[in-house]
Design a protein around this nucleic acid. Sequence first.
DNA 1: GACCAAGTTGACGTTAACGTCAACGTAATA
DNA 2: TATTACGTTGACGTTAACGTCAACTTGGTC
Lengths: 143, 143
Amino acid sequence: MSNTEAKKRSYTISDLAAEFDITTRTIRFYEEKGLLTPNRNGQSRVYTPADRTKLRLILRGKRLGLSLEESRDIIDMYAPDRDNSDQLQTLIDKIREKRLQLQHQLFDIETMIQDLDEAEGRLVEALARHEDADNATDKNKTH
Amino acid sequence: MSNTEAKKRSYTISDLAAEFDITTRTIRFYEEKGLLTPNRNGQSRVYTPADRTKLRLILRGKRLGLSLEESRDIIDMYAPDRDNSDQLQTLIDKIREKRLQLQHQLFDIETMIQDLDEAEGRLVEALARHEDADNATDKNKTH
DNA sequence: GACCAAGTTGACGTTAACGTCAACGTAATA
DNA sequence: TATTACGTTGACGTTAACGTCAACTTGGTC
């Protein structure tokens, strides 16, 4: 009946809310904070594929623990003012800093996954011993 | 004069605050929330190396965007009640879920690093062109 | 033209994660 | 013993990131 959500030329606010499983309030909030600047059709907001991409960047940033401010910085990196070399250099610096931080985060995650693996191993073992004990006393149990 | 902070048997609250660059208020707050349970010497808190490790886990969790609740879950995985097989199974499930989430996050980070690399490439190029333009007009400029 | 769904703008409420401050206790040191 | 440094417990304030709600408009459609 309708293009689910692929390859549209424009989206309503509830299109995007449904696709990304967030509320329309959230999307308007991002606009208030200057992260999105959709067009208008009369009073209603109309979102372009570029807006949709920005929203995706914001939500990915959230999963990575970025603040909305930080996400805005990253979004700005995609459409900077190419005549302002100061701003360009600032953005480059920010990118390099952010990349370092992400690499640190990569390491943290790998470490935490290892830790979780070890913890799981111990727990599974403890659980197995527990079941052995259950079996050994099963003759006395009805449950 | 003092062991900077390595291989101590116990720590004061400000030892830990200094080491991890957080405030003592933060550490007490984590205790209020049940993430830490230091001993006392009279009125003062005394932290063991295990407490220090927990604090490290909490802060690593924060860098990864975990809430304090989630960090507490993870901490609990290291010292569960081994007689309660229901709890063991619950913890194992939580671990597996958390690992999936972390793997997703790994992917997000790698993607974002790639994106940043591309963005930086474009910016560096734009900057280079800008400088060329500067040079080309340098004969007219004093600045 | 009455109605409904979807959208809009305020305004206010809420939660997590601390910060700030006041008022006090305590231990070592001068 | 007076000072100073460090620690403690409330109590209240703050910020980010939304949720909730009320009152309104607008575009179809029965």
